[in-house]
Design a binder for these strands. Sequence first.
DNA 1: CGTCGTATTGAATGGGTTCAAGTAGCGTGG
DNA 2: CCACGCTACTTGAACCCATTCAATACGACG
Lengths: 245, 245
Amino acid sequence: MLHHLNPLIRKLEAVASLSFAEKEAILNLPTTVRVIKAQRDIVRERDKASQCCLVIDGWLYRYKILENGSRQIISFHVNGDLPDLQSLHLKTMDHNLGSIVKSTVAFIQHEAVNALSAEFPNIRDVLWRDTLVDAAIFRECITGIGSRQAPERMAHLFCELFTRMQAVGLTQKNICPMPISQQALADALGLSTVHVNRSLMHLRRRGLIQLEKQVLTILDWGRLKAESGFDSQYLHLHPARLVAA
Amino acid sequence: MLHHLNPLIRKLEAVASLSFAEKEAILNLPTTVRVIKAQRDIVRERDKASQCCLVIDGWLYRYKILENGSRQIISFHVNGDLPDLQSLHLKTMDHNLGSIVKSTVAFIQHEAVNALSAEFPNIRDVLWRDTLVDAAIFRECITGIGSRQAPERMAHLFCELFTRMQAVGLTQKNICPMPISQQALADALGLSTVHVNRSLMHLRRRGLIQLEKQVLTILDWGRLKAESGFDSQYLHLHPARLVAA
DNA sequence: CGTCGTATTGAATGGGTTCAAGTAGCGTGG
DNA sequence: CCACGCTACTTGAACCCATTCAATACGACG
């Protein structure tokens, strides 16, 4: 149980089923474990990738920098996530991958992933499925930024992150870590920091959430979910891992 | 050359390489061809899918409807696209797929795709790759809606659609079909129709594009590309298919 | 104990929406 | 052949959500 690749197993089992032999094979993957300081880039746009990165413990994020210098955050990643699994078939990075806080990651050579996939077709399909869930999250993100107002948009992100962390055992009751600065939240939601602050205040004053010292507490899940229009279906979680809403 | 699955071959060869045997096998896929009227739903959110849809000729789009009734368009799809390939591993649809204009589509059973993938691992990887490019387009879309102003956002979409159509031979010189109403454009870009109209006027008056009778003419590719910040790298096109910008 | 990043709040500005009215294009039926 | 009705597009004007500028407060850390 103390294996460093356990977060990966837990994550994959959150979206699919694995046999004992498959789990065993995953745990035997050759990896290079590294600790990354906060606010560091791990892979950059235009890099050619020959390995992919697994979050063992910490928070990573993917982002693009535009011509005008502004930063758009594409996604956040927690324990068990494979944020650049797409590099397995898209060798050139079209965005950056960086750390939000000090994180422990494992690098896995593409060759090793391919060997594992060849031996265990089910693992290959589970990995493919994982990249498809990644895309499903993007679709929901487009929907939020394109059609939701600031407070709902932010509430929706909190619902998603809480649900994803819950599925891999990173929550306690109605509490989860949330080490995202208002600046980063702004860049993820397509808002200014000032407006993120005000929207946050709005959610707090109405008793929906609490957010302090990088810890998020969901005070009223029902209303938060209803008002943000959150429906976890798009996360395509394994039924057994779906905690009753 | 007159086979109805040729658009698929052309599309796949725009992003990867196929052997003769592989192309042969693809052309022998069992399909059900159907003509769909304009403005019809093909698959709906929450449907369980057992087949996927190939655009032989026409325009499809994917979209979500929000609690408040507004529509967010996620993507547009032209000849050769497999807009719901993700259903191969995510059986429950998390969005809708509909037709913009009268279109000819081919339905392919998941079983048939899986059989083909088992026999030709390269085809399976090319399909996986295609779903990853789909996700890369979503990432760019998030970036546009989140960080670009209306005219640039619209110009960027035109650049993308033109480039994608060019890669599969649907353009003539600087001209391509663009049967998207301003209403649909608005729902795709996260804008109101009024503002779409004004942004369009803006691009027209500055001599960047022409758009009438559902035909788009790129009048100044250089400036359109530069001002919208378009860089085709994220489309991950096969080098041979990349037309010099 | 100063300093720098992060959060908070006020006020003015602006990009985009909404409401509203009018126009152009097109297929249908009298 | 033209009136009719429909839909898509266009334009003006008031309004508002969100941005920008600016100032202050807070807290962690060397």
